[in-house]
Amino acid sequence: MNHLDIHLLTLISIIAVVGAFGGLLNYLHNFDTVENDQKNKYAKYRYIFLGIGAAILVPLFLKMISSNLIEDTPEYNNSNYLIFAGFCLITAIFSRRFINTLGEKILEAAKNAEKTSKDTKAQIESAQMELTTAQERIEDVRVAVNMNNVSTDVSEQESMSILLGLVNSFIEKTSIPDYAERLKLKAELGRRMGQIIATKFDLQKNELLNKHPKEGMYLALAYSVDLRPDSLGVSLLNKLAKVSSQHYTKYVILLAYRTLASSGWVNKHQAKEVSQLITKFRIQADKALLRNIDDTISVLKFIEPEI
């Protein structure tokens, strides 16, 4: 039998013997007993087992406080066994309180770990959104520059069929677990639909909105404004801002607002109205969307400083 086996067996023996002894002391002297608990042999055994159970939790407690009291090392001091036995005795005597307190600490730690995990995930997703949208923004500019070179060979009827097919399948196609891939797919579909609208149905945007009130169409129309800004863009985006529900659609709407503002298509009165509308985007917004709301309001303040 090697040194490690002896050390482990010693700790187990201390837990069992001292835990049982502490439970018995608790039973005899009512240190941590239930009020009006009947004293009989069943109660005695119950307190003994409760003491052993509490003593078993001592290594977990020591781990939680980062203590190396029971860590096996070549220079291990045998007096640590006495200290460990003292810990086990105290926890066995006050077994109920110790178990309840430790249980609460563990549950609290689990909740904190879950919260930290969620916060970390939110930060990663926010960073992914900013990276993805930055890359897609570059692609949007390229598409806008080349808009006049888009082939017009496809008939309006065929274009409408393609557009509605993409709109109707948008939610299904973008319902994938990977966040970065989901963002990329939304951007690709949104840009393609927006390009179709901007080149084929530029004068029918409000009609498309009224006839096809779906999230895919909202995103497509927002992209069409961003790709080909004009005097009617603000009015259309205002309508979209009131009905869009997905964060990414709101994100593209904000980009389109900034494109219109930088192109001179937003006046002072419209700037105030837009500011009021996008402020409502803050409800349940993630960090990336909040930053873009602030960026858009900053751009609008160049038009109307009193916002």
Score class of each variant (00 low, 15 high):
K211H: 05
K239P: 00
Y223K: 04
S245R: 12
V141S: 08
E139V: 05
T259H: 03
L236I: 14
S244F: 01
S159T: 13
R191G: 07
R142S: 11
S159W: 05
I171A: 14
G216Q: 01
L203H: 12
D226W: 06
A187C: 09
M193R: 00
I138L: 14
A180H: 12
D202C: 06
G233P: 00
L209N: 02
L163H: 01
M147V: 10
T199N: 14
K200L: 07
L208N: 01
A261W: 05
K211F: 00
S151Q: 10
G233K: 01
V145D: 07
G190D: 02
V167C: 04
R182P: 06
N206I: 06
K184F: 13
K242L: 04
S224D: 04
A187Y: 01
S155W: 09
T259I: 06
R142M: 11
V145K: 09
L164T: 02
E207H: 04
S161I: 14
L254E: 01
N210G: 08
L203Y: 14
Q157K: 14
P229Y: 03
L209W: 07
Y223P: 01
T199G: 07
E125G: 05
T199Y: 07
P177R: 05
D226I: 05
V252E: 03
L185K: 07
D153N: 12
A122M: 11
S231M: 13
S175L: 09
I171H: 15
S245E: 14
M147C: 08
D178E: 15
